[in-house]
Amino acid sequence: MTAEDTLQQARERIGACADPGALKELEREYLGKKGAVAAMLAEIPKLAPQARKADGQRANDLKQALQALFDERGAALATTKLDALLRADDFDPTLPPPRALRGGLHPITQVTRELEDLFTSMGYEVLDGPEVELDHYNFEALNISKDHPARDSQDTFYCDDAGRLVLRTHTSPVQVRAMEKRKPPFRVIAPGRVFRQETTDASHDHTFYQMEGLVVGKDISVAHLIGAMKTLLRGMFGRDLEVRLRPGHFPFVEPGFELDARCPFCEAGCSVCKRTTWIELLPCGLVHPNVLRAGGIDPEVFSGFAFGLGLSRLVMLRHGIDDVRHLLSGDLRFLEQF
């Protein structure tokens, strides 16, 4: 067979080959160690010297031509295969991936952290206080006298008949504990759980969460309190909310206020704000001189403000939770939503 015939035949066979494996096989048949071109080259030394050059040249040309054909076909087949791969997979986007179990933090923890981060960024210290608290810190030092109605056993869990130990009814006892260990100026917050001896229903639980705030320094005023509360709201709701202070009576502040904020959920009244467009958000006030004294701070020299934020209530507002008892229910169907 002449080189031309060989080339012609190979061209046809390569053209017909659709499988990369078969193509490799074919390539070996022509260009392998024992292939057609090798056989042709092996014949050359046997030829007359004058014919060797021409035949050698022909064999080499054939080899190159064949190699080019194989490379071209190989590249074409690879492209075809890639095209097929790219075309073939029409993946169902609605096919669910394997279910992964997810962990998560309690919504109370989430909101507590946000507030801790907000306040620590302004140099507040985060404090902790005991839940089983001395009557002294929970009441006496906070200017709540023995005869004050807040001390009724209807509101307070007492741990002994002598009334020395109670479950703290608010986070405010941390105020005096903080004063005892610090010199003004200072600013602290104290989130934590508190207890009230009351019958439970959808909006009352005997255990809930609060966050106390306390700032003590020289010439701390109502104007500072308003500024700090606006900053707090900005951090909590991500925008400026109009606030109003109105008189509110708490024995450990004087003057005392209720701080209302414009309802962040509506403009014309909704169920959250009971159609008033105001949300009663937190009690606050200037620290009562008797409380400063109980903490070893001279009220003639220093003053301060304090506030108490209802964390459980905030969580309920934020997520529209209609029953406070879900918070401590331990029900995964509830916990998994946060």
Partner: peptide
């Protein structure tokens, strides 16, 4: 202090402008 409250509430707390707290900057412990 009780008289301060009387004056503040009749003057109206809403008529008091907010003021920023000024403190020496130090990170909490």
């Amino acid at each position: 202090q009780d008289l301060v409250e009387e004056i503040g509430r009749i003057h109206r707390y809403g008529n008091i402008a907010e003021a920023p707290l000024t403190f020496t900057i130090a990170p909490p412990a």
